[in-house]
Design a protein around this nucleic acid. Structure first.
Lengths: 112, 112
DNA sequence: CTGCATCCATTCAGATACTG
DNA sequence: CAGTATCTGAATGGATGCAG
């Protein structure tokens, strides 16, 4: 259903929308673009986010191939997340969106 | 709920995610960036989309201030949609995302 | 520290049908 | 031609608790 046949394959916009669907995707990608982070470090940066929710988002991003999960076999467990090549390629777009977001905020605050 | 106090105001990423949340936002913005369109013209471009759904998306985008609705007082009714200044400013980001989407599709198809 | 399973609440796309 | 109202089902964010 939704968009049939060709479009779903041909349309990059659709892909983008799918990948960025996660409510926290942008934030996560942003933080990971600055540095590789462990699960808990990431969670601390994203306050107000339970570990279950974060886990789901990370899993989704990993499945999309945007981030890389590296597990260290040790006690206590340690897992690091970083951007994949694909994720790194997205960064310019991210920066661009970030700037636009600032414009938007500026605009709407002057509007009120 | 979710992200409290400052972050929600300060974080452009959050704004972006809110605006692009709609499943069809990217497509709609794309088509409108090429030309001003009437409701039905837009719907024809977005096949597989009921007018009710499209109406909701357009309303959301209009509320976000990304598109402009122009109504002509005539029979039969005529309404045109076009990008606002804010919407136009988003275009570079859109293009950037589009390119990335293509990369993504290329990558995943070679991966399979 | 990290992750999974479960349940709940909400959100939202989509279908249908009705109005001017 | 354009828009609205209502309903449904699916997806998903989020809370809690349990397990390596």
């Amino acid at each position: 259903m939704a968009i049939s046949s060709d479009m779903i394959k041909d349309c990059p916009y659709f892909t983008v929308q799918k990948v960025l669907a996660g409510k926290w995707s942008l934030l996560i990608l942003h933080f990971l673009s600055e540095e590789t982070l462990r699960f808990n470090e990431l969670q601390r940066k994203l306050d107000n986010l339970t570990h279950a929710t974060l886990a789901k988002q990370l899993k989704a991003l990993e499945k999309s191939g945007l981030i890389v999960r590296t597990e260290f076999a040790q006690i206590p467990p340690k897992v690091e997340y970083s951007l994949s090549d694909l994720g790194r390629k997205l960064q310019p777009s991210l920066d661009s969106l970030f700037e636009w977001g600032q414009e938007y905020l500026k605009y709407s605050s002057s509007k009120n």
